[in-house]
Write a protein that binds this DNA or RNA. Sequence first.
DNA 1: GCATATATCTGACTTTAGTCAGATATTGTC
DNA 2: GACAATATCTGACTAAAGTCAGATATATGC
Lengths: 290, 290
Amino acid sequence: MLDPVSRVRRFNRAVTSAVGALDTSFLGRGRPLGAARVLNAIGHGRADVGDIRDYLGLDSGLMSRLLRTLEDEGLIETTVHGGDARRRIARLTAAGRREFNAYEALSNQQARDFLARNAQRDALLAAMDMIASALGRESTALTEMDPRSDEARYCLGEYYAELARRFKQGFDVKLSRDPDAKDMVRPRGSFIVAMSDGLPVGCVGLKGSGSELAEIKRLWVAPSARGLGLGRRLIDAAESAARELGIAVLRLDTNSALAEAGQLYRKSGWTEIPRFNDDPYPDLFFEKRL
Amino acid sequence: MLDPVSRVRRFNRAVTSAVGALDTSFLGRGRPLGAARVLNAIGHGRADVGDIRDYLGLDSGLMSRLLRTLEDEGLIETTVHGGDARRRIARLTAAGRREFNAYEALSNQQARDFLARNAQRDALLAAMDMIASALGRESTALTEMDPRSDEARYCLGEYYAELARRFKQGFDVKLSRDPDAKDMVRPRGSFIVAMSDGLPVGCVGLKGSGSELAEIKRLWVAPSARGLGLGRRLIDAAESAARELGIAVLRLDTNSALAEAGQLYRKSGWTEIPRFNDDPYPDLFFEKRL
DNA sequence: GCATATATCTGACTTTAGTCAGATATTGTC
DNA sequence: GACAATATCTGACTAAAGTCAGATATATGC
């Protein structure tokens, strides 16, 4: 009753019936699930017909008929793709938007009901984030973004909050050497966010100086996404960006309270060097030649 | 990107595709899902045809045909129910057992792969337990069991481990007044375990003395199942059992370090009374007249 | 410009799932 | 023992999903 495999399978059973319940409530709108899935995929921004087909794993004949059903109902319109006249683009009509919103409302209501039924809301949400990240790991995408974007600012906020929790003396970003956003966008540097199905789950900044020397800053992985090798992927991505920008030497500072970070740098080929700045927070300094 | 509803829905999406992947791998055995589900239900010990039908939510006509398909394949046998000749009992043949084992192997392999892919195994399992308990709450069943059963001993082991963590001075069951198992089985007392889809997630003991006075002992709820009202259900069940046994006065001892327990007792109509034993661990004593 | 590849559509299927109205046998109740 | 209730089965359906072999139009590489 305790073995890990049984526990995973118990989870699978619980979740299968919950998923089935949502499908059933979708059927309440009087449309077969296949058509509802296509409508929802379009509503969520998938426009390219081939892309939708791949995403839903449908045969091209079936896809074509489902599209036509929705078109006949007046819920979607299709046009040819601008650059490639073989491809088609689908988008919702006003009626389709209303119908899509009704499906969204069902999904949202189901989610709200689940949250309302349970007292341990925050713990449950954290558990769900963790599982979603673990299941969606191969689909976690690293994207270069502006450090002033919402996604980046969310990551940085979480990162500062975590430092404040983990440093004995707390953390105040104003006392630290906060990099100028311009140093972390091309051509000087870069800022990379890891997105897992819409949720930012990690980030790293490459702070350039216009010279062949740059710094890695703000490496953060969401607690729900730890243990998945994401830290390593972020460092690798930052190093690749640095190579592209012609940077020869990378440096970074960190704190020995962040033990997993120090280990990660050592395993990734970084070497410890003496202090190279007077920031009050770091006590550990690394360098890597590319 | 942060609101709880989006997080629940991200979880739903991740899990839906994982569930779909298992269904697909089941289809790889060349049998439609409906028949595979019936075979698996029988393999997992469901024998009564009506019970299987309810469990899988099938129409009786469909059920009958699926059963016959499996029978024609030589995977199951059906016999009439001993006590009621209208009902039928299904069980696996040797070939059916082999086929069932193949499905089990697929499920187990999927679970093992998931665990092997992820470094944070224990945290993930804890998260899965929590979600499975939250989803399966209405199906958590309270069952009277022998306190020496595997399920009960698992609960007690977890309970002692938790006391050891939470008491400043630790916890050694040998120093405490460990109730004799016989005092917690009928007719003197009772022991109740909460089972959620095969996993024990809570327990409570009713320790009788042969008189109209009894004690509540060993109330425990698994961390993964807290916030679901299970503690209250366990107390209610213990009180009902006490009433059945003709007990008029219930007592219990607890420790102020277990704040949520104290709150629960107060909310459930218990009143604080002076110390009534010399056990070194408790510092808080309650009584309830039934 | 021509052969080949790609994206979508159409027609003609099959399989699976699900529904519903009886038929049959058995059980429990008065 | 008659009669209603219950459990399962059968026949006759419909709807949904999925398959597959072309047809058509367009794009790409040589």
